[in-house]
């Protein structure tokens, strides 16, 4: 294991450059293996500072219609946990520095076997895990094995995470903290920037870790507003929505899909990097 992880290195660089970052989410295998690889490979050059790669699941309970549809497209095109890790490994052949955080639900990992999964994920070159339905109460069986292979289990903090609970949740954090800006599913409501500001301020008092803010960020202006309060803004539904817009009538990728997604990533990254750093 490297002494300093890619996640820590990337956020340290952002702070040094006094710049705010973009975490770009796409689902592995959406809309098909080739187009998905091309999108993921293009993300760093388009301005993504961290890649959040969705591990498709049939029943994504915390996700809105855009990511549900994305997950389903990926499953239909044959995506599995194994193919997701293979995508990471292929990406790593040409990019040794951009952090990759795998996002998904616990069931496929539990079925794969926790020890085998974290070992294979580390070998493929993944840096972090966000497991939506694994709150700190249930996460010990994954946290230890992940830590042993140098993978950060990223904690989520929500507007409902009260002051009594927050320090306990943050004690389990490593890598960065993901602040869920709204009470809701992905890709629906958007938070007021002022609310995000107050929430992040509270978090800063409790943790030195970088903070990324996601849920409901669709435009460059929103990315800028949110990123002005945090280390990075996370965008997901808007990007997979762009994939959906660039499919043909049969649901197959059109030649426009990769440039369309990467073009939006560019806009959002520019938005985030315009954010003023106090």
């Amino acid at each position: 294991m490297t002494a300093t992880s890619r996640i820590a290195t990337r956020f340290a660089a952002l702070r040094r450059e006094r710049r705010r970052g973009l975490v770009a989410f796409v689902t592995a295998g959406d809309p098909d293996p080739q187009a998905s690889l091309a999108i993921v490979k293009g993300l760093p050059a388009a301005g993504a500072d961290v890649i959040e790669l969705g591990m498709p699941f049939s029943d994504p309970m915390a996700d809105g219609p855009a990511i549900q549809a994305s997950s389903l497209r990926a499953i239909r095109s044959g995506a599995t946990l194994a193919s997701t890790l293979a995508l990471v490994a292929t990406f790593r052949e040409t990019d040794a520095t951009t952090p990759i955080v795998l996002m998904g639900y616990y069931n496929p990992i539990y079925g794969y076997g926790v020890e085998a999964f974290v070992r294979d994920a580390a070998k493929a070159g993944a840096d972090g895990l966000i497991i939506v339905d694994l709150p700190p109460e249930e996460s010990e069986e994954l946290r230890g094995p992940a830590a042993n292979v140098g993978i950060d289990l990223i904690v989520l903090v929500a507007p409902t995470t009260g002051p009594a609970r927050l320090p306990w949740v943050l004690k389990k954090a490593s890598g960065f903290v993901y602040y869920v800006a709204v009470t809701g599913i992905t890709g629906t409501k958007s938070a007021a920037a002022a609310d995000v500001g107050r929430a992040v301020e509270t978090l800063r008092r409790e943790t030195k870790l970088p903070i990324a803010v996601g849920f409901g960020i669709r435009t460059a202006a929103q990315a800028e507003a949110v990123a002005s309060h945090a280390d990075a803004a996370v965008v997901g539904s808007a990007l997979v929505g762009k994939i959906a817009e660039n499919l043909d009538a049969a649901g197959k990728a059109t030649p426009g899909v990769v440039p369309a997604v990467l073009g939006l990533v560019r806009e959002l990254a520019d938005g985030a990097s315009r954010a003023k750093v106090a």
Partner: peptide, 9 residues
């Protein structure tokens, strides 16, 4: 209790 953090509280 395998739920998202938003629901956990």
């Amino acid at each position: 209790r395998y739920v998202a953090e938003t629901l956990m509280p």
